[in-house]
Measured scan of single mutants.
Amino acid sequence: SADYSSLTVVQLKDLLTKRNLSVGGLKNELVQRLIKDDEESKGE
């Protein structure tokens, strides 16, 4: 998976916004949300 932890919070929020995901929470939560979304989209 992508190394989201190396991105800035601003970059993470931009990715979340593009996916229509919540941008609330700490950086670690944003990273986990993106990883979870990646895993769910692979399952389709």
Rank of each mutant, 00 (worst) to 15 (best):
K27G: 03
D3T: 09
S5G: 10
Y4S: 00
D37I: 03
V10I: 12
L16Q: 01
E39S: 08
L21P: 01
K18L: 10
D14P: 02
K13D: 02
T8V: 02
N28G: 10
L26T: 15
D38G: 04
L34N: 00
R19S: 01
D37Q: 06
G24V: 15
D3C: 15
E44I: 13
L12W: 00
A2C: 14
E44H: 14
L7W: 09
E29N: 05
K42P: 07
D3V: 10
L30A: 01
Q11R: 06
L15D: 02
S5C: 15
E40S: 11
K13L: 08
S5K: 09
L16Y: 01
K36H: 09
D3F: 15
V10R: 14
L30W: 06
S5H: 13
R33C: 03
R19I: 02
E29A: 07
Q32C: 13
L7F: 07
Q32G: 07
L21Y: 01
E29D: 12
E40F: 09
K27N: 03
V31R: 05
Q11T: 05
K27T: 05
L26N: 15
S1P: 13
L16V: 03
K42W: 09
K27S: 04
L30E: 01
E44F: 14
E29W: 04
V23I: 12
S6L: 11
G43M: 13
V23A: 09
Q11F: 05
G43S: 11
E40G: 09
Y4H: 02
A2G: 10
V9D: 06
D3P: 11
D38M: 05
N28E: 15
T8A: 05
Q11G: 04
L15F: 05
L21F: 01
K27V: 06
L12R: 00
L15N: 02
S5Q: 11
L12P: 00
S5D: 11
K18G: 07
S6R: 13
L7D: 00
G25L: 02
S41N: 13
K42N: 10
N28S: 13
I35D: 03
G24S: 15
L15W: 04
K18F: 08
L34P: 00
L7C: 08
V9N: 05
K36N: 10
V10P: 14
T17M: 14
D37Y: 14
S5I: 08
L30T: 01
V9M: 12
K42A: 11
S41R: 15
G43T: 12
S5F: 12
D3H: 11
Q11C: 07
V10C: 15
E29Y: 03
S41V: 09
Q32E: 12
R19C: 04
E39C: 09
Q32M: 12
T8L: 05
N28L: 09
D14W: 15
D14S: 12
K18Y: 07
L7S: 02
K13M: 11
Q32S: 08
Y4A: 01
D38S: 04
N20K: 11
S22P: 15
V31L: 07
V23P: 08
E40V: 10
S5A: 13
L21N: 01
K36I: 08
S5T: 10
L30P: 01
K36C: 08
V31N: 01
A2S: 11
Y4C: 03
L15H: 04
D3L: 12
D37M: 05
K42M: 11
S41Q: 13
S6A: 10
K42Y: 09
S1E: 11
K18W: 06
L30C: 04
R19F: 02
L7N: 02
E29P: 01
Q32I: 07
Q32A: 13
D38H: 04
S41H: 15
N20S: 07
E29R: 05
G24P: 03
K36P: 01
S22F: 08
T8R: 05
Q32W: 08
K13N: 06
Q32V: 06
N20W: 05
A2R: 14
I35P: 01
L26P: 10
S22V: 06
V10E: 15
K42F: 09
N20I: 03
S22E: 09
K27A: 05
S22W: 08
D14E: 14
Q11D: 06
T8D: 07
L7T: 01
R19H: 02
D37L: 05
D37E: 04
E40D: 12
V9Q: 05
L16H: 00
V23R: 08
L16W: 00
S6F: 08
G43E: 11
D3I: 11
D38A: 04
Q32N: 11
L21S: 01
S5P: 06
Q11I: 06
S41M: 12
D3A: 09
V31M: 07
I35H: 06
L21C: 05
L26E: 14
E44N: 13
K13I: 14
N20V: 04
L30V: 02
E39Q: 12
L16M: 03
Y4V: 01
K36M: 10
K13V: 11
K36F: 07
L7Q: 04
K27C: 06
E29V: 07
K36Y: 07
K36D: 13
V10K: 15
K36T: 09
I35E: 07
L34C: 02
V9G: 03
A2V: 14
E44M: 14
R33Q: 03
L26H: 12
L16E: 00
T17E: 09
V10H: 12
T17Q: 13
V31C: 05
L15C: 05
E44P: 12
N20E: 06
K42R: 12
D14H: 13
V23F: 06
Q32D: 10
T17R: 15
S5R: 10
N20M: 07
S22H: 10
K18I: 08
V23K: 07
K42C: 10
I35C: 07
S1V: 13
R19W: 03
D14Y: 14
L7M: 14
K27H: 08
V9L: 12
A2P: 14
L34I: 04
L26V: 10
S5N: 13
K42G: 10
E44A: 13
S22M: 07
S41K: 15
D3S: 09
E40Y: 10
K42S: 10
V31Q: 04
E40I: 10
N20F: 07
R19D: 00
Y4K: 00
A2L: 13
L7V: 01
E40W: 09
L7K: 05
K27W: 09
